[in-house]
């Protein structure tokens, strides 16, 4: 196993842990987006360009955006 792959796998594992441990939902949207990029890098290394494209579009843009909008609405509801 190449060192690059090892690093990528460990980064993904660490990224996921950080996302789960981030309590504040607004900040979690940011960590989730970074985690999406880490996954994308891993997928590129795993020779999966199609999947990487999907992941970068969905995992680090659309889903975090929806999370942000939901957080905003949820906070607004509390006012």
């Amino acid at each position: 196993m190449t060192p690059l792959l090892v690093v990528a796998f460990l980064l993904v594992a660490a990224g996921a842990t950080v996302v789960v441990l981030t309590r504040e939902p607004g900040r979690q949207a940011v960590t989730l987006s970074v985690y999406g990029v880490l996954l994308t890098l891993l997928f590129v290394l795993l020779q999966a360009p199609d999947v990487a494209l999907s992941q970068v579009a969905v995992g680090s843009a659309v889903v975090p955006l929806m999370v942000l909008l939901a957080v905003r609405k949820v906070r607004g509801g509390k006012r």
Binding site: V19, P25, Q28, Y35, V63, V67, V71
Partner: peptide, 9 residues
């Protein structure tokens, strides 16, 4: 919201 993100993870 945190729960939903964890499901995605």
């Amino acid at each position: 919201v945190h729960t939903v993100v964890c499901v995605a993870v």
